[in-house]
Design a protein around this nucleic acid. Structure first.
Lengths: 229, 229
DNA sequence: AGCGGTCTACTTGTATACTAGTGCGCATGC
DNA sequence: GCATGCGCACTAGTATACAAGTAGACCGCT
């Protein structure tokens, strides 16, 4: 079982790879909400020992994606309205604060990079590549946070965003949905380019709340994934 | 060395106690910035094994209070202007968003509890009990976040706040400083009680920025604690 | 048949053993 | 005396062993 580090795919340590793998599995609902996990099973499946698995699970617990019950088991948390509301609140607070600064500090070079991202989003839309769009979406929001000088805003928002990410990944986008998202992105970016913090914040807040509108749809499609409130 | 759990003071697991103990030691500068830590030494000192120590250190790394360098050592981070700015940004974003909701949702019962806290703050000021004031200060901010319905705002703000906490704890308050703080607290609470989100946010933002004014003082007193920028 | 106690198999929490790698010091050669 | 190279002691990362506790199945009793 002792595998040299160099044989492991990816650059990071075992703990980080376990974290990424399990998080992706949870967010994509490959590990469905409510499912019971076992540190031993995960360790076997990923070819590592329990130690890095445990450290990864602790991080996921901080994100409320798993619940660890001593002497009983570890479970994928059910999607909860409270957790979704908290995630939305945190993300809105952090990103909207960040974008105000971004609007004041944006440089032409950065804006050019962002424009290229928007073009790529449209290409992903044309090709119907939903996964590529998600990656570009994240990259755009991250870039906007970077512009504020507080990259930590994105890191925290992302970490708080687990429950919302699950909703996003579960949703099968209706035709035209991506186009709508891109239009909102453009509106936000335009306000930043104009150096208008108030408008940028308003547009972003509107944009961030669009995702919430999908929650009820997903809830209807997968009631067993949700916590009863 | 195998100590039964019941013999350990406090209610939490070993990992949590290690976390609290080490965090307190760092924030109070008992473990001074730049100091090298050793998992083995900490484990011996606290009477536990390396495992819970490691898990605690990972959490502290997330808060940027320690830096873990593989195969080399773990170090208490130097206080950094960037980290302070990030902490202030995050705290301002989260708490100011929360207090807007708090101003809309505050109940008479909660306001009464907050008033009692303010009275206790004044008693602490009279008695010159700075530690008690810090506890009450935290309790007040936490309560205001709770009122918003997003307790997570306080949890995240606190976790992001490590570098600022160190500054706060290092500062020897000048006479009248606590009185000023209490006056600002009263102004914030009054705006919340009036149900005025805009004023509450403005007052809180002003209040949160006061702590920053102490940074340069501390930097002059302990230049070796700071990262050169 | 229905109920109750025990026992097993599994869980996480903690402790310890081992691996790979780094820096520092000391000894050796110049 | 000084520079260089080797070795030791210590580090964090990972693997494994042990401890404590829970749920559920199963067997015996009423």
């Amino acid at each position: 079982m002792r595998i040299p580090l160099s044989d492991r795919v990816g650059g990071g340590a075992a703990r980080d790879q376990v974290y990424l793998a399990v998080r992706e599995a949870i967010v994509s609902a490959e590990l469905e909400p409510g499912r019971r996990l076992s540190e031993n099973e995960l360790a076997d499946r990923l070819g590592v020992s329990r130690t890095p698995v445990r450290e990864a699970l602790v991080r996921l617990r901080d994100e409320r994606l798993v619940a660890i019950v001593p002497q009983l088991g570890t479970f994928v948390t059910l999607i909860s309205d409270d957790a979704i509301a908290d995630a939305a609140f945190v993300r809105e607070a952090l990103e909207c604060s960040a974008i105000r600064l971004a609007a004041e500090r944006a440089t032409p070079a950065a804006l050019e990079e962002i424009q290229a991202n928007l073009v790529a989003q449209e290409r992903a839309d044309d090709e119907g590549d939903h996964d590529a769009f998600d990656v570009l979406d994240d990259a755009l929001h991250r870039k906007l946070c970077e512009l504020s000088g507080h990259e930590i805003a994105w890191a925290l928002a992302r970490r708080a965003n687990g429950h919302l990410d699950r909703v996003r990944r579960l949703s099968l986008p209706e035709p035209g949905y991506l186009g709508e998202m891109i239009a909102e992105h453009r509106a936000v970016v335009a306000a930043v380019a104009d150096g208008d913090p108030d408008r940028a914040e308003r547009e972003l807040r509107h944009h961030l709340r669009m995702v919430l509108s999908q929650v009820s749809t997903i809830r209807d499609a997968h009631p067993d994934y949700f916590e009863e409130s």
